[in-house]
């Protein structure tokens, strides 16, 4: 879909590459998420697809057709804006019908499509209201319906849930997924919220510094992060510096952690999720000795900070007990184990 796209701002020495040779193919009918911190280029990529910006070089293809030079009003792509950008002078129904009206669709057809869209986002009762009379969640639905009404080939969503409170956001996540399945339209969703990305997407592209760091299904991104950025941006991760030896990585203090380090030598970075760290008795065979530095209560979970013999710190996440009290005291000498296959070798 986007082919070798470079978007550069500025000129000469001060040039900033918002997108640096990004190539990504989005499949028809898929829920695709661009995930990354602010300034990573995800919104720029979205604006390139919408046509609000032109790439410095490279192409944008939709359905195999080059649309790089086309203005937004000629692309079969609609956007749900972060601020919704609803037209304040129009009613809910007129907002939804706007795109069709501009396309020159017959009035009767506009009316029936608007009705259909109102039903789709469950706002039938609000058709005649001004958008200023709606709640944030309702405005969000109008914005969705307005962008879906012309049946675009691609729907772009620019952090549409960021203005909603937590409960509403969860509801809308389910709602968005439902809309996408019902309409079968390709969704390209931009967010900095990893949970949003993991729960809704078919595939995720994790972006940083204008590049795609990793592209894959949510499960793959979470369980097999390719590099340090992806591992730390998605979920919590412990990083360990080790030296590659046969069958694992050797810590500076001599203990060997089992991992697939085949074909590697020299210093490597290992990653392991806190929930894959188990705390055992200090003298258990094969366990790495550690000292408890402290604990934090998270409701369902309890996080322990531990110091390894080489001086590095790691976190272990265990289910909290019935009482919610830490069962292991600060300063206690314990052993830790990693779930088999949970320690990953990162390409740095």
């Amino acid at each position: 879909m986007a082919k070798d796209v470079i978007k550069a701002f500025g000129q000469g020495e001060t040039v900033v590459r918002a997108l640096d040779n990004v190539s990504v193919e989005i499949k028809t009918g898929e829920f695709f998420t661009l995930l990354g911190p602010s300034g990573c280029g995800k919104t720029t990529l979205l604006r390139l697809i919408a046509g609000f910006e032109m790439p410095s070089s490279g192409q944008i293809l939709i359905d195999g057709q080059d649309v790089t030079g086309q203005p937004p009003n000629q692309r079969a792509v609609n956007t749900v804006f972060q601020s919704y950008a609803l037209f304040p002078h129009l009613s809910v129904a007129e907002n939804i019908g706007f795109g069709l009206k501009m396309k020159g669709v017959a009035k009767a057809e506009i009316d029936s499509t608007v009705k259909e869209m109102l039903a789709l986002v469950k706002l039938e009762a609000m058709a005649g209201r001004k958008t200023s009379q709606l709640s944030g969640g309702q405005q969000q639905r109008v914005a969705l319906a307005r962008a879906l009404a012309p049946r675009p080939k691609v729907l772009l969503l620019d952090e549409p849930l960021s203005a909603l409170d937590l409960k509403l956001r969860k509801e809308m996540q389910v709602e968005l997924k439902r809309l996408q399945t019902e309409t079968g339209i390709t969704f390209v969703f931009v967010t900095h919220d990893q949970e949003e990305a993991l729960t809704m997407s078919d595939r995720i592209a994790v972006m940083s510094a204008g590049r795609i760091q990793q592209l894959g299904a949510p499960r793959e991104i979470y369980t097999k992060p390719r590099n340090r950025f992806v591992a730390s941006f998605i979920g919590e991760t412990n990083f360990l510096n080790a030296t590659a030896v046969a069958g694992g990585g050797k810590l500076a203090s001599g203990q060997v952690i089992a991992a697939d380090t085949a074909g590697k030598s020299g210093p490597v970075t290992l990653a392991v999720r806190p929930e894959h760290v188990t705390i055992t008795a200090a003298d258990e065979a094969g366990a790495i000795p550690a000292e408890v530095l402290g604990s934090v209560y998270f409701g369902t979970d309890m996080n322990y900070q531990l110091a390894l013999p080489d001086g590095s710190e790691i976190e272990a996440c265990v289910q909290s007990g019935v009482s919610g009290e830490a069962s292991i005291a600060k300063g206690a000498k314990v052993g830790i184990r990693f779930a088999p296959g949970s320690v990953l070798l990162l390409e740095d």
């Binding site: 937004p72 009003n73 609609n78 804006f81 950008a85 609803l86 037209f87 706007f98 307005r146």
Partner: peptide, 11 residues
């Protein structure tokens, strides 16, 4: 931002 919204919706 409404300009972009209109422009995006085929106007």
């Amino acid at each position: 931002r409404l300009l972009e919204a209109g422009y995006d919706l085929y106007a």
